[in-house]
Simulated scan of single mutants.
Amino acid sequence: MSDDDDTDAVLLYLGGPLDGRVEVREARHGAPLPTVTHTHLHDGPKVVHHYDLHPLTDGAGVYHLRVEPVPQTVDAESA
């Protein structure tokens, strides 16, 4: 997906709260962003999700939910 392209982009979201969402980004808005941040505020604390763009063709791409590494806890007995 290039900045000088004059065609709309079709974008699919996979994972997280946006799973299955399809967005058509009009060419006049420029190329899709490499990363999209979604903040979920419903029924509890704020949860932030990051989606990274994986282009498929010049006019299509998939935003995959970024999987953050799970923090490792140190067991007191093994340290």
Rank of each mutant, 00 (worst) to 15 (best):
V67S: 09
P32I: 04
G15A: 10
T35K: 07
D4T: 06
D5T: 07
R28H: 12
L41Q: 14
R21E: 14
D75Q: 15
V74M: 09
T57Y: 00
R28P: 00
T35N: 08
V70R: 15
D3N: 06
Y51P: 05
P69F: 00
L12Y: 09
V24C: 02
D43F: 09
V70C: 13
P45M: 10
E77H: 08
Y51A: 08
E77C: 04
D58E: 10
D52F: 08
S78P: 01
R21H: 13
L41D: 11
V70D: 15
E23V: 15
L41A: 11
L11C: 11
H29Q: 02
D6K: 00
D8T: 05
L14A: 09
A60H: 10
E68K: 12
V24M: 04
V24R: 08
V74P: 01
H64Q: 12
L53G: 01
R66E: 12
L18R: 14
P34E: 08
V47N: 00
V22P: 05
H49Y: 15
E77D: 13
Y13L: 07
T7N: 13
L12F: 07
H50L: 13
A27V: 02
A27Y: 11
L14C: 08
A60C: 08
A27T: 01
T37D: 10
V22A: 09
H29F: 05
Q72I: 06
R66M: 08
P69G: 01
H64S: 08
D52Q: 12
P55K: 11
H64K: 09
L53C: 01
E26V: 01
G44Y: 04
P69L: 02
T57W: 00
D75T: 11
H54P: 03
G61N: 11
H64Y: 12
G16R: 03
H40A: 02
A79P: 04
T37H: 11
H29G: 00
L53H: 01
R28S: 09
L53R: 03
D43N: 12
D58N: 06
P34R: 05
Q72G: 06
H42Y: 14
D19K: 03
H54M: 06
P32R: 09
E26P: 02
G44T: 04
D3E: 09
